[in-house]
């Protein structure tokens, strides 16, 4: 059964594109057929993070408008066989994308892939709403910082009201991916902690990704961190998150801390 997952946040620059690439590659490396789709029309970046910027011929808009076949637009990853990319257009604007067109593309992708990851543009406007429209699940990417948490809260509300699943009266699964986390700063009370963000947003935790130079290095060379530095701390955190997305139970580690979060909570309770 195919799953369509939107990677969304409201706020820009929090790590949606980085996370789409990293989760997509990790899911594909464990044998799933995965397509990552860039919905950031006009500001496409997923192709760059995936290292496929020079291979884009046709994009999501071309396929949605019927100007190209899906097979012509899909870019197969050269490193991971089961991973594909559908790029966004750089020249058109987001009004060029119609809801019916997106519906057709997503339906066709469902027939070809186990996971379709939709990289949402920032904001709460048309582009972001189209990216989430046909999703079964959502990964809400949040930084431990006030404006990001506020925007995530807003996005959670939209996921519960504006997605097709929600309109049909179904629940849409939403999981929190806390990124750019700095355990040291959180423990010194300089940055919101994991428990703070979880309590405020009250959705389950998919993973905690540390602030890491490896991420920048990976994007410099155009490789998802889970391909470029899979054993780095950030790489492993994304691998774990991908396994949780597949439904596996993986102990939650706070990057930069030795004990698992569960132990910490239990430890604190016992004390």
């Amino acid at each position: 059964m195919s799953k369509v997952v939107v990677v969304t946040s409201g706020k820009g620059g929090v790590g949606k594109t980085t996370s789409t690439a990293a989760l997509g590659a990790a899911l594909a490396r464990s044998g799933n057929r995965v397509c990552v789709v860039d919905f950031d029309v006009g500001l496409r970046n997923l192709d760059l993070v995936m290292g496929a910027e020079r291979r884009v011929v046709y994009d999501l808009i071309n396929v949605a408008n019927g100007d190209a076949k899906l097979a012509q637009a899909l870019i197969r990853d050269k490193r991971v066989e089961t991973l594909s990319l559908l790029a966004a257009s750089q020249t058109r604007d987001k009004d060029a994308l119609s809801e019916e067109g997106v519906a057709r593309v997503v339906a066709e992708l469902r027939g070809l892939f186990d996971y379709v990851l939709c990289d949402s543009p920032a904001g709460i406007e048309r582009g972001a709403l189209l990216a989430m429209r046909f999703a079964d699940e959502a990964v809400v990417v949040t930084n431990p910082e006030v404006s990001s948490v506020r925007d995530s809260d807003r996005i959670i509300g939209l996921l519960d009201s504006k997605t097709l699943r929600a309109e049909q009266g179904h629940r849409i699964q939403k999981q929190l991916l806390l990124t750019r986390f700095d355990a040291g700063r959180a423990s010194r009370g300089e940055m919101l902690g994991v428990a703070d963000v979880l309590e405020i947003l009250s959705i389950p935790l998919l993973g905690i990704i540390p602030e890491s130079e490896e991420i920048l290095r990976a994007s410099n060379v155009g490789a998802p961190i889970t391909i470029n530095a899979a054993t780095s701390q950030a790489g492993r955190s994304y691998e774990d998150a991908a396994r949780r997305l597949m439904g596996e139970t993986v102990p939650m580690l706070v990057p930069g801390e030795k004990k698992s979060l569960l132990n910490r909570i239990l430890g604190r309770r016992a004390a």
Binding site: V146, R150, G189, D196, I200
Partner: peptide, 18 residues
Amino acid sequence: ATAPVARERLQILLAHER
């Protein structure tokens, strides 16, 4: 520590915005 302030401000604001 400023994180507790952030947390409290968010809780109040979001209760209203929701």
